[in-house]
Design a protein around this nucleic acid. Structure first.
Length: 314
DNA sequence: AAGTTCGACAACCGCGAGTCC
DNA sequence: AGGACTCGCGGTTGTCGAACT
């Protein structure tokens, strides 16, 4: 007997999600929390596979995620982490707040891989060190890095458990609470309108997380998924349907520091999808470690990849 | 202007790990 | 102990607009 399908595929809708579907999903998760995905299609009336619902939530609707507009430091982090961890996108994403593994994976495949290939070609023309040398990390160095990685993960977990709040990093400004994240993707595509709607759903969720002073008792799933503590109000639903993208600042960019300083609720959401490290990782420490490692190996070329104002290789 | 190719991203698929009974 | 089930991850494909011919 083969493995049964995760859900009955017959009659299941595929392809891009509509705003109505998103709203239905968000409303359900607001009420019952994320989890038990198998029950989601039945309870929401969505003709979507449970896996599709989970993916949609974790990658796009979940509050606290940022999309597109990778900062220079984020780019460098991804490059280093990819060299260190390989294509373990979930692990890489755990070091980058607000970024999903899918987003990082796509960014790597569409941007960074090409850049590095280009760079590597250029370096190979000169000598056999640089990037190629960076990738030829000895076994001992890999083990050392792995040990450090584990140590840091453990440290982060201890920190997270010892703190009253999951994240003691204060909000640097009102961006997170107001949800004014930079518009990032598909600005030129027809689906950009809907991309805005998706972001708005996420924004609204963030807003509720921060403004609702009282939280009902948590169920088991809610304990794992803080988002379950809010209900979708009619006003919110209305705003979802009438969202005007012109109200958002598309030109605004978020610095790496701002990226680090996401709010506590966002951190909760973030931890939801990235539980492996027990919460936000001390990124500055990690970054410093990565930088130091590269420098120690005399392979800091990567850190000095010339980038123009658009974070493009020059 | 129409057709083709390319690029970017959303979404799907299959598999493995973990959990529950 | 082991089968059923759920979830998460990584690779891959599909879709659509932009750029090019």
């Amino acid at each position: 007997m083969g493995r049964p399908p995760c859900c009955d595929k017959t009659g299941m809708k595929k392809g891009p999600w509509t705003p109505e579907e998103d709203i239905a999903l968000v409303a359900y998760i607001q009420q019952y929390g994320a989890g038990n995905w198998r029950a989601v299609p039945a309870n929401t009336g969505l003709s979507r596979c449970s896996k599709s619902c989970r993916l949609r939530w974790t990658n796009y609707l979940r509050p606290g995620i940022k999309r597109g507009n990778f900062a220079e430091n984020e780019e460098k982090m991804i490059i280093h982490l990819q060299a260190l961890l390989g294509n373990r996108w979930a692990a890489i994403a755990s070091y980058l707040p607000q970024r999903t593994d899918n987003d990082i994976k796509n960014y790597w495949n569409t941007h960074l891989r090409k850049k590095l290939k280009k760079l590597q070609t250029g370096l190979d023309g000169n000598m056999n060190d640089g990037l190629s040398g960076f990738q030829q990390i000895s076994k001992g160095q890999w083990e050392k890095r792995l040990q450090t990685d584990i140590h840091m993960a453990r440290q982060a977990l201890c920190d997270a458990l010892s703190l009253e709040k999951p994240n003691n990093i204060p909000l640097s400004d009102s961006k997170a609470s107001t949800g004014v994240y930079p518009n990032t993707t598909r600005s030129t595509q027809s689906s950009s309108t809907y991309a805005w709607s998706t972001e708005n759903v996420s924004r609204l969720l963030e807003g509720w997380m921060k403004t609702d002073p009282k939280r009902p008792p948590q169920t088991n799933s809610q304990a794992k998924n803080p988002c379950a503590t809010k209900m979708l109000s009619p006003e919110a639903l209305e705003s979802l349907l009438t969202f005007d993208s012109s109200t958002s600042d598309t030109s605004q960019s978020v610095s790496f520091e701002e990226t680090m300083n996401y709010g506590s609720d966002a951190a909760l959401f973030h931890a939801e999808s990235k539980p492996s490290l027990g919460g936000p990782v001390p990124l500055m420490m990690l970054e410093r470690w990565l930088f130091d490692e590269a420098v120690a190996q005399g392979q800091d070329e990567l850190m000095d990849i010339p980038l123009d104002e658009n974070n493009e290789l020059v």
